[in-house]
Design a protein around this nucleic acid. Structure first.
Lengths: 241, 241
DNA sequence: GAGTGGTCTAGACCACCCG
DNA sequence: GGGTGGTCTAGACCACTCG
């Protein structure tokens, strides 16, 4: 009740409970002590305790049953692509060596589809960035990225190569913080240039993705076409009711 | 402060604000009155007001900026497959006629992959349901569903045809309420029986999906293989930071 | 400095579940 | 009936943003 580290009590409590989950002091299916007991233990009011617990419930680690108690979920905590976490955490952790190569950076006039996604007019300037990602030298993903020029006025194309290792941070430094997004997935066949760049036969399966990313207030920041080799890539999504 | 309809104040407030968003009394980008004002207006304490607002923020309809105010997101509210809502709401609303046909229902011994997903032993009994979904008579999706027999002891195979229109409700009536899940998507090529049933050439692109659904406590309830015609199906996912 | 949201309290009463 | 979570209060002080 007298901690003044600047971190809120409910955050401290949340992380302490998370620790107990990771170290399995709290095991799958266990019932936690009652909220009243926990609040007393942590020296906070019940409302504050609940604020911490709520976060863990949102993450799917705990669940409540009215009149019964609060429990540890039996869920395996699986990789979760429905949470945003930047590009570079996405590749499989098992992979050996991941490289990302800038194929081109340019200023282009937005075509209708891109303009609509970015909320700009057709023909307005946009920054186009094309990258190739490889695992152990095998090409696996092509990104074709569009940014509204108006949100990145001071950017020079030469800056982009250095920024590529963490594009989201690059957006942030220009005042554009990614908050949420929407993506659409399709199965397609490799063709033409895309097939060549991914070293695929024409007709091989491609996991095709379109994605728009937004700032907190809903301003579109990035639109992306993404072509993934079907035989080397899958997307995992957590579903939450 | 004296409503006794049995509905919590924060729910009533949340829905009233949602109404104002839908009817555009609150427009994209608008700032809401301060929490203190709103709490006074609705006749509740500030904590209660915030509980209602928090739900709308979780849905992405509003956002807060510390020291500034609470605002209406500019986000388009798009279709969202990362929220669970049962099978039958998933097909495109624009589609004309959707039919779902039961191809088979049987008791089978779980193979290794299915058993692992369902948390049962290899060889244990599971209920297998295969369905074909068509739009305007065109086959579009095959579902190959597995349920742990032990969770559906009283079920007769003959019951399944009637239950198919709403499988999730069927699960609920047997005490298995779907709470969350995980799915994995891949691009593949149509082959053999799957190609035939979807009336595709061998090699045509397929959006392949595996999904496991869980109850609140993490018990697996359903495991599913799903084969979608690549040229007629896409999956849309909302990303939330 | 004025106004906003962020955190927190120390209680209270209710609804639900179980033996 | 006893214990649990669900809702709610009427304040308080702090941290942040902006003019």
């Amino acid at each position: 009740m007298d901690r003044i580290d600047g971190i809120p009590h409910y955050v401290r409590i949340r992380e302490e409970i998370r620790e107990n989950l990771l170290s399995e002091k709290l095991k799958k299916g266990d019932r936690l002590p009652s909220e009243e007991e926990l609040a007393a233990f942590y020296g906070v009011s019940r409302m504050t305790l609940r604020q911490g617990i709520n976060d863990l419930i949102d993450e799917g680690l705990l669940y409540r049953r009215h009149g019964v108690g609060t429990f540890v979920s039996k869920n395996h905590l699986m990789r979760d692509h429905s949470r945003l976490n930047g590009f570079n955490q996405q590749p499989e952790p098992s992979s050996d060596e991941i490289t990302e190569e800038l194929l081109s950076a340019s200023i282009v006039q937005a075509k209708a589809h891109v303009a609509k996604a970015l909320g700009i007019e057709e023909g307005d300037e946009s920054i186009r960035i094309i990258t190739l990602r490889c695992i152990d030298g095998e090409p696996i993903t092509i990104h074709d990225i569009y940014l509204p020029r108006v949100l990145f006025k001071n950017v020079k194309l030469g800056d982009i190569d250095a920024a590529m290792s963490n594009l989201w941070e690059f957006y942030s430094t220009h005042g554009n913080v990614i908050k949420n997004g929407i993506q659409r997935l399709e199965a397609r066949q490799a063709e033409g240039e895309i097939a060549e760049q991914l070293k695929l036969e024409s007709g091989a399966p491609i996991l095709y993705k379109e994605r728009t990313l937004y700032a907190e207030d809903g301003t579109p920041i990035e639109f992306l076409y993404c072509y993934n080799r079907g035989d080397m890539y899958s997307v995992t999504i957590r579903l939450q009711r």
